[in-house]
């Protein structure tokens, strides 16, 4: 009897022991830094002498000074995520269902450009979209852009840059969930006189939702916080909250404001995420 009790006792602890490394990791590298971040965000003073003074004003600056930046972060980030989904879904669908024996090749082609460093890829867009470049010339010729029109250093270029840079993160999860779908389910739908369109909306699309959710999270969260695209492809009129945080932290040495803005951005993202995940569900994400 005693041995059984000892075994069950031990068993009860095993899951916690297994969780310990991950839990410790989270504690040290996630919760402690966040607590520190909040602490710094309530400090005041001049570098290097900051004092903790419950300086709530650091947070109010978000609304007095940096509201346009927050709005642009959300607009560009969510816009790019949406456009990314519209591009990624047909792409993933094509590879999964029509790729045939070229499937792996197509995946490699999709990922190949991303072997190049992120910054070089973004800088290359500066050449493609340059005022005298081929894209602008072509758009001018067909009259979509005025004689003085430009693409580089506009919001269009920034959203395009974000969309492009995060495309694989949207495409791959969608591809994986499409690939997993049991084809006989679609055949069954067809046998039951569902047109291809109806079969897609009733069978394929719902089954691919986990990929859509995962892809949009993987893209949306970093896209809202991105600032490199706005820096390189935009002008100050396109700067996002990330740009402000960077300049507060590095140039002005105003760590408290930088911390307050970072924390606010995290909260904003969380506020968007919660209803989104509630509506779409995450159970399938782990399946």
């Amino acid at each position: 009897m005693t041995t059984t009790a000892a075994v069950t006792g031990r068993r009860r602890w095993v899951p916690y022991l297994l969780m310990a490394p991950g839990g410790l990791w989270l504690l040290i590298f996630y919760f402690v830094p966040i607590a520190r971040l909040v602490e710094v965000s309530l400090q005041s003073g001049i570098f290097p002498r900051y004092r903790f003074t419950w300086e709530v004003g650091n947070y109010l600056r978000l609304f007095t000074d940096f509201l346009p930046h927050l709005q642009r972060s959300l607009l560009y980030g969510l816009g790019a995520t949406l456009i990314g989904l519209l591009i990624a879904y047909p792409l993933a669908y094509g590879i999964a269902f029509r790729g045939g024996r070229y499937k792996n090749l197509l995946l490699v082609l999709l990922l190949m450009p991303f072997l190049m460093p992120f910054l070089l890829r973004t800088l290359s867009w500066r050449i493609i979209l340059a005022d005298n470049g081929p894209v602008v010339e072509a758009l001018r010729t067909v009259g979509l852009l005025g004689a003085d029109g430009r693409l580089l250093a506009t919001g269009v270029a920034v959203v395009a840059g974000i969309t492009y840079n995060f495309l694989p993160f949207t495409t791959l999860p969608i591809y994986v969930s499409l690939e997993k779908i049991d084809r006989s389910l679609i055949e069954a739908a067809n046998d039951l006189y569902a047109s291809p369109v109806v079969a897609f909306w009733k069978v394929t699309f719902p089954l691919s939702m986990p990929g859509v959710v995962a892809g949009s999270l993987l893209t949306g969260i970093p896209a809202i916080g991105d600032y490199v695209n706005a820096e390189l492809l935009g002008t100050p009129e396109q700067y996002m909250l990330g740009n402000v945080i960077q300049s507060r932290f590095l140039r002005v040495l105003d760590y408290p404001s930088a911390a307050a803005l970072s924390f606010s951005l995290m909260l904003a993202i969380l506020l968007i995420l919660i209803p989104y995940i509630r509506a779409t569900g995450t159970e399938d994400l782990v399946a």
Partner: peptide, 29 residues
């Protein structure tokens, strides 16, 4: 050099740990 434009990536990499250390304890003048 153009890495300065990377202010970006580089800064983010250093910003994490330093932000923590920056507020770790008293700053000596």
């Amino acid at each position: 050099e153009f890495l300065r434009r990377m202010g970006g990536a580089g800064a983010m990499l250093v910003a994490g740990p330093t932000l923590l250390a920056a507020c770790g304890g008293e700053q000596a003048a």
